[in-house]
Amino acid sequence: MPALAAGRRHSVLLRRDGSVLACGNGRAGECEVSSWSGITSVAAGNVHAARNTGRSHTVGLRADGTVVTTGWNGDGQTDVAAWDGITAIAAGWRTTLGLRENGTVVAAGRRIEGQCAVEEWREIVWIAAGDWHSVAAHADGTAVAAGNDLRGQCDVGEWNHLTAVAAGHLHTVGLQQDGTVVATGERRTGACDVAGWNGVVAITAGSRHTVALREDGTALAVGDNDFGQCNVHEWNGLTAIAAGSAHTIGLRGDGTVIATGCNADGQCEVATWNAHR
């Protein structure tokens, strides 16, 4: 199934045939995905907008449960060659997570803030990676988090009825079974202002903004809008969304891709993409 991923300065599209496209800043090799095939899911490492490294990584999940990566490996975040039995992936800043078919989680990359301390997690069905923290949803709908809790982004212990989670720079978002959304963490950016949302079927978190896909194919967004990354309210016919550090991309049902937000590195140059080709 076609899917999207967005990082600090690049965007990624998984096409229906299992091939992958990428655009944007590729100086660390994060856009070198043209040889990939048999991919079922993609993830892109994200970096807080204030950082100026310009380096990131891209992750792909193969149909056989193995994982392929490309890009920056400063903290070992692409050292995933030995992983197998993986059913889902997530990429953060200097971090990669993999969900195994038995409900456990593996991690590679930076460990200083504790974001890779996921060895004890069990019965996990969804994972997300932020800048300095990792989050997961259990099969029973509760959540667990590890890593930096500077703004309360790991305060998910009372959440329940979850079907998905997403992680940004200093905030965490959860999608509930009834289509409503909860959030915790840094509130000054507005990225946690999701209390009135409903009819949501998917969520994604950028560095300082949050985006939701509604069941009618429209999108919602809150948070930092300095680059227009939240200008998604006129989008329609969507089947997938992804939030990068300061840009947002959406996949339409006809296979085309749209983008808004920061395009300093060409990460929004997706007009020619089609997931069905």
Score class of each variant (00 low, 15 high):
residue 36 W to P: 02
residue 47 V to A: 13
residue 13 L to F: 08
residue 162 L to R: 02
residue 249 I to V: 15
residue 108 A to L: 00
residue 38 G to Y: 03
residue 160 N to M: 09
residue 4 L to P: 14
residue 129 A to R: 07
residue 250 G to P: 14
residue 19 S to H: 02
residue 12 V to S: 01
residue 86 I to H: 07
residue 161 H to D: 15
residue 194 V to N: 04
residue 149 D to K: 01
residue 31 C to F: 05
residue 269 E to V: 12
residue 104 T to M: 02
residue 60 G to C: 07
residue 46 N to K: 08
residue 21 L to A: 00
residue 38 G to E: 03
residue 197 W to Y: 11
residue 84 D to C: 15
residue 161 H to I: 03
residue 6 A to Y: 00
residue 109 G to I: 11
residue 122 R to A: 13
residue 201 V to T: 15
residue 226 D to V: 10
residue 132 W to S: 12
residue 33 V to L: 04
residue 33 V to Q: 03
residue 249 I to E: 04
residue 80 V to T: 15
residue 189 T to V: 06
residue 216 D to E: 12
residue 102 N to A: 03
residue 214 R to A: 14
residue 101 E to Y: 11
residue 191 A to D: 04
residue 92 G to E: 05
residue 136 A to I: 04
residue 36 W to T: 05
residue 172 T to C: 07
residue 134 S to I: 02
residue 130 G to T: 02
residue 30 E to T: 03
residue 235 W to M: 05
residue 182 V to L: 15
residue 131 D to I: 03
residue 274 N to F: 10
residue 7 G to W: 06
residue 188 R to T: 04
residue 130 G to C: 04
residue 28 A to M: 10
residue 75 D to Y: 13
residue 172 T to R: 06
residue 85 G to N: 15
residue 93 W to F: 15
residue 238 L to I: 06
residue 183 A to I: 05
residue 272 T to V: 13
residue 226 D to T: 13
residue 237 G to K: 04
residue 142 T to D: 03
residue 86 I to S: 09
residue 182 V to M: 13
residue 258 I to K: 05
residue 23 C to Q: 05
residue 149 D to I: 03
residue 79 D to I: 06
